[in-house]
Simulated assay, not measured.
Amino acid sequence: MYVRTSEVRGDPARLDEGLRLIREEIYPAVTAMDGCAGMSVLFDRNICRVVATTSWRSEDAMWASTETVRALRESAERALGGTGGSEVHQWEVAVAHHDHPVPDGAHARLTWMSCKPALIDRAVDLFRMVALPQIQEFDGFCGTTLMVDRGAGRIVGTAAVESRGAIESSRDAAAMIRERFSTELDATVDGVEEMEVAFAHLHVPEMV
């Protein structure tokens, strides 16, 4: 399974209109494409940052959708009042575990890291054996994924929980997991974000 993430910034005053367009127009258009398995959208209202993720049943399907998705992404940028320059990345899903569906009002923590490309398999094993069992213990845990870019040595882990309170209560535990993970891999933590879930229909199968 493969995914594409599109990271867009815009005008906070236009966030709700942008999210409406994504939900009502872009989501149906993307998920109707050959090979698309689903889509999810996370956002930070304070800075109008939106991360949209689409899942694909094969790498070929993901790449074949590039031009069509680009046009849809540009329409979302305009609706959000963005100035262009959105960041787009392609990933392989290495680990996915779901406890139950992500409800309205859920939040997610995204952790972006980079390491030596030769250590990606080690990172996957470490996440599966060490991080995953601890993440599952977070209050309100819904699910988690680990996505990798093997060529670039990039990693992004996402953990979804049921509420803002749950994301706040898990901060210390998440920081400890992150420190151990980065230390054992000699990895760089490129960023940590806590975002609200607009909707989560990514439909990535269980991969543990």
Rank of each mutant, 00 (worst) to 15 (best):
M1Y: 07
R4S: 13
S6D: 04
R14P: 01
R14Y: 05
L15R: 11
E17W: 02
R23I: 01
Y27P: 00
Y27V: 08
P28S: 03
A29V: 07
M33E: 15
D34I: 01
G38R: 04
V41P: 04
L42A: 09
N46T: 13
N46Y: 10
R49C: 02
R49W: 10
S58N: 03
A61L: 02
A64W: 00
S65K: 02
T68F: 06
V69K: 04
L72E: 09
E74W: 02
A79D: 04
G81L: 10
G82H: 03
T83A: 14
E87S: 11
Q90D: 14
Q90S: 13
E92C: 06
V93W: 07
V93Q: 06
A94L: 06
V95F: 09
H98K: 10
D99K: 09
H100G: 05
V102E: 00
D104P: 09
G105K: 03
T111H: 11
M113H: 06
S114E: 11
C115Q: 03
P117R: 05
I120W: 01
D121E: 14
A123D: 04
A123Y: 08
V124D: 03
F127K: 00
R128L: 05
P133Y: 12
Q134E: 13
I135S: 05
Q136H: 09
Q136P: 00
F138D: 05
G140E: 03
G140L: 07
F141P: 00
M147H: 09
D149L: 09
D149R: 12
D149M: 06
V156G: 02
T158Y: 04
T158V: 14
V161S: 01
G165D: 13
R171M: 14
D172V: 14
A173V: 08
A173S: 12
A174T: 06
A175D: 13
I177R: 01
E179N: 11
S182C: 15
T183V: 09
L185V: 07
A187D: 05
V189M: 07
D190T: 11
G191Q: 10
V192I: 15
E196M: 14
V197F: 00
A198F: 14
A198W: 03
F199K: 02
H201K: 08
